[in-house]
Amino acid sequence: MTLAMTDVTLTYPDGDQPRLTALDTVSLEVAAGRLVAVVGPSGSGKSSLLAVAATLVTPDAGKVVVDGTETAGLSPAEKAELRRERIGIVFQQPNLLPSLTAAEQLQVMAHLSGRRPRETRSRALDLLDAVGLAGKADRRPHQLSGGQRQRINIARALMNEPAVMLVDEPTSALDHERGAAVLDLLGGLARERGVATVLVTHDRSHLKAAHAILTMTDGILTP
C-alpha cells in the first residue's frame, strides 16, 4: 500500500478534562491510483487524520507508512523531506503565496527540492494545462478566481510527483458546479498519475470519482 495507517490513535489535551480523542485506532489503506473519500461532520477527526498522514502531527499510538517509509521516529527535517518529495497536500483554502505567479506557485515546490526554477517551468506549465489553466501561468493569485486558485492548489500538490496526495475539503469555498468540477479533476489526476489520494470532506455530493467512501464519526473510521 502506498499509504497505510494502522491503529492510529491521537488525543489532544482539553484543559482540566480528560484528553480529547481525535482519532480512535484508525486504520486506512490506500493503493496507488486510488481515491478514498473520508466524510464526516466538522470536528469528527477528518483534519486530524490528514495531519497525521502528512506527518504534521505525531500520533499517540499506531503506525503510519508513506510510500514504504514509516513516519515514527523521523526527525523534523526528515518529515519535511517526506512531505516535499512524496506527499502532496491540497489545502482547504488555496493558500497561495501572494508574490508568486501561478507557474511560480508550482515551481517553488521544485525549488524546495533543490531543483532550478528554469528547469521546472515546462513541467509547471504542463500541470497548469492539465488543471485547465493554460495561459494563466503569469497571473498572481489576486488576478484569479476562487476556482482557478483551487486548481493551482491541486497542481502544486502534484508538482513533485508525490506518491500520496492528501486533500482537505477542496470544495468548501467553491459553488456547487465548480466544486463538482474540482472533484472530477482530482479523481482523474489520481488515476492518471497513480497517486494514492485521501480526500476529506463534509459534503457527500459529487463523490462518484471516489473508489471508496469511509465515514468518520467522533474519531472512529467506518466503511
Binding site: A80, E81, R83, I87, L97, P98, L112
Partner: peptide, 16 residues
C-alpha cells in the same frame, strides 16, 4: 507567518 506555515507544510526546511 501564514506563508511560512504553508511552505513548511509543503516541505520547506527551516534552514531553507
Amino acid at each position: 507567518s501564514g506563508d511560512i506555515a504553508v511552505l513548511k507544510a509543503l516541505g520547506a526546511s527551516t534552514p531553507y
